[in-house]
């Protein structure tokens, strides 16, 4: 049998940003353990997380009775995930930080059927929430990342980070000013948006009278990126990310500006 890829996706209500990275790491470790225990060989095991999903992806998996084995392994992996804050949302006793809304599990083009969190696994998922409640049906595991990208979800952390960095660089070139791409802020943004779209906005000149580090602190607390000139002097602009489509950019720019200015008014 030709080796096929294996996919498990858990779709949930928006998750606390702090728990996703650790959950994805656990998912990867537990999957490697369980696969080895069941005698499944695979090319690679990776796990990814967004604010709404946890994804396990193993490439080129071979072994006997694959679908049967995976349908035993998947619920076990999910039940072994640990969280600082979690509760039971349905009678099965499965605990999770927020309610689980969908399970997608495929081996190549075959459905891996199991039950967990009071749900049965299927071959459908959802795209970005801003696009409405459209269901996506997956023909095979191998089509997962492309299908989700078309539905405005960048599943891989690398992909989102790359998109954010590229957007900040492009905006910086356009403005002929530097955007301070603070790594910690980028890390926070990583689990706040499934499809980060850049927003450039500004604030009233008068706030530049505030101590620069204070101003930077307020901007970063809102996950905004300060903008400065070649000499590092702050400018009355900032960059930020919204989640999803780029319609109504003006609304978002105005809202972000109002959120920032009200915070700055409180401290000045």
């Amino acid at each position: 049998m030709t080796p096929r890829d294996v996919l498990l996706e858990l779709l949930a209500d928006p998750l606390p940003a702090g728990c996703v990275r650790s959950a994805a790491e656990q998912l990867k470790r537990l999957a490697a353990e369980e696969f080895a225990g069941a005698g499944l060989a695979c090319g690679s095991v990776e796990a990814y997380g967004t604010c709404r999903r946890l994804v396990l992806y193993a490439a080129g998996v071979t072994g006997g009775q694959m679908v049967k084995t995976l349908s035993d392994i998947f619920p076990r992996i999910l039940s072994r995930l640990e969280f600082q804050q979690a509760r039971a949302w349905e009678p099965s006793g499965f605990r999770f930080p927020r309610p689980v809304r969908g399970l997608l599990a495929l081996h190549g083009d075959r459905l891996v059927a199991f039950s967990a969190a009071g749900l049965r696994s299927g071959r459908t998922t959802e795209g970005h929430e801003a696009l409405g409640p459209r269901r996506l049906s997956l023909a095979s595991a191998e089509k997962y990342f492309k299908t989700l990208e078309h539905a405005s979800v960048l599943v891989k952390e690398d992909g989102r980070l790359e998109a954010m960095n590229a957007a900040l660089e492009a905006a910086s070139r356009r403005m002929k000013l530097g955007i301070e791409a603070h790594e910690e802020t980028l890390g926070e943004c990583l689990y706040c948006a499934e499809y980060p779209v850049p927003v450039i906005s500004g604030f009233a000149q008068e706030f530049l009278a505030l101590p620069p580090e204070r101003l930077r602190g307020v901007l970063r607390s809102l996950r905004f990126f300060p903008v400065s000139d070649d000499d590092g002097r702050l400018q009355p602009y900032f960059a930020a990310f919204r989640d999803g489509v780029s319609k109504g950019q003006r609304n978002v720019e105005d809202g972000f500006r109002a959120a920032l200015e009200s915070r700055l008014q409180q401290i000045s």
């Binding site: 930080p97 801003a130 696009l131 706040c192 989640d243 489509v245 319609k247 609304n251």
Partner: peptide, 21 residues
């Protein structure tokens, strides 16, 4: 309100009053 013309964020919190956004 046209959802697609705006940015909607769900900031999670966990507290004694409950779990939510």
């Amino acid at each position: 309100l046209d959802r697609s013309e705006h940015d909607v964020r769900w900031l999670a919190f966990d507290g004694e009053a409950g779990t939510g956004w």
